[in-house]
Amino acid sequence: MKRLLHTLYGEPWWHLAALLASFALCGYALARLLSGDWWGVVQWAVGAAVVHDLVAVPLYGGADWLLHRAVRAGRPRSAAPVAVVNHIRVPAFVSLMLLLVYWPSITEDSGAQYRHATLLDPGVFRTRWLVVTGVLFALSGLHLTWRFRRDRSHPAD
């Protein structure tokens, strides 16, 4: 019996049991989730996965690769360019995370609705994001300068 399942299914029995239990719950909820604008929901859920995997990942991977090329600029591998890359990479990553999460606020996508509901000015978020980004890059740059100075006065090897 076990061998038959393995031949037909390719995985142990508990693998099938776990997935069937999960599909039962997901199916029950999905039937309700899709009872309205089902096509819209499918587009959003599948679209999010596709956009993430096929657009976002290649995009940020490619940007990271270009950053390396630009910083290294044909020089042989050494610790210094890698440090420069990371001191750009880290603040850029944090800044992009803020942009991603707060995209509707920063782009004022829902600015009118926001002002209407909260009585607050929707125009401040772009400036704030730019300032936070500037501070992140400035701190990173200062840290890098400090590291280079330290390494010059106490060469590691």
Binding site: S22, F23, G36, D37, V41, Q43, P104, S110
Partner: peptide, 23 residues
Amino acid sequence: QLDYVFPGSFYPLHFYGGWVFAG
């Protein structure tokens, strides 16, 4: 962020979607 661009009312989308995700 009050950006209601998703396909439907937030409550059912987020509640039932949460159960699908949990499963």
